[in-house]
């Protein structure tokens, strides 16, 4: 060791060989890199399967991509840790098998707002519409930004088949029929939601607005596990 690092020692020699130096650096980096990727390879097919966890419906998928667009992940986590207070506050802790269809994962790193991993079913659809339009209307003092444009912007569904085809090629089990019928399916789910919102005294004509997709996604979150017990 001391031979290596002394002035004019062996290290001095490799300082004169940039190529060797670079290769050694790469090796150093790759050792740790490989060990970090090992779990990935090991986990392939090793994540305990939860049979009730199914891919997102087309409308939920559209909603999820809107969630990504708006950067909700910057304020909301979707990862409940196994602590007593988190179980009490948010519900059962998150399992690896619950995010197998999440591309990208949306666990987040900052909880400026509460965790949303199990927010599905916690509130009625209309609550979410009101909350997204003006968070202060449902949660006084809230610091969440308003998202009123979600109620006026038209929901784009025509890119759904391309998106689902992409996901299918990555391993999400969508069938060809799912993909071909995706737009219709999304429209049907959206109309259902919009009818429910209107019936409860909410705004009319939301069926083709972005908000329904976001609500569909939020209402889905974390419900796969409860499906199991029902």
């Amino acid at each position: 060791m001391s031979k290596f690092i002394q002035t004019n020692g062996r290290h001095r020699t490799i300082e004169g060989w940039p190529l060797v130096f670079t290769v050694l650096t790469v090796i150093c980096v790759l050792v740790g890199g490989t060990v970090e990727f090992l779990p990935l390879v090991l986990m392939e097919g090793n994540i305990p399967v939860i049979s009730s966890v199914t891919p997102y419906t087309p409308l939920e998928l559209a909603g999820r991509d809107l969630y990504i667009r708006e950067g909700c992940v910057n304020c909301h986590s979707q990862m409940i840790r196994p602590f007593r207070d988190e179980l009490e506050r948010y519900g059962d802790y998150s399992k690896p098998g619950e995010s197998v269809y999440d591309r990208p994962f949306l666990w987040g790193s900052k909880r400026t707002g509460p965790d949303l991993a199990r927010v599905g079913g916690k509130y009625p659809d209309l609550w979410h519409v009101r909350h997204m339009e003006d968070p202060r209307s449902t949660s006084p003092n809230s610091i969440m930004p308003p998202y009123d444009w979600l109620l006026s912007k038209t929901l784009k569904l025509n890119d759904l088949p391309a998106k689902m085809r992409g996901l299918k090629s990555l391993g999400t089990p969508y069938s060809t029929a799912d993909i071909d019928g995706s737009v219709e399916d999304a429209n049907a789910q959206a109309e259902n939601l919009a009818r429910n919102i209107a019936a409860n005294g909410g705004p009319e004509d939301l069926a083709d607005k972005e908000i329904v997709a976001v609500v569909a996604y939020l209402q889905r979150l974390g419900t796969d596990l409860t499906k199991l017990t029902n």
Binding site: G33, F37, D65, S99, R103, P104, F105, D159, A162, L170
Partner: peptide, 28 residues
């Protein structure tokens, strides 16, 4: 490594890895 993704549109892509594995790559 972290940008490995499948484009599904001009400005939209889905990562090659999902869930737990995506989390690993992301924080690596």
């Amino acid at each position: 490594g972290n940008s490995l993704a499948l484009p599904v549109g001009l400005f939209k892509s889905y990562p090659l890895f999902a869930g737990v594995q995506d989390a690993f790559v992301q924080w690596w």
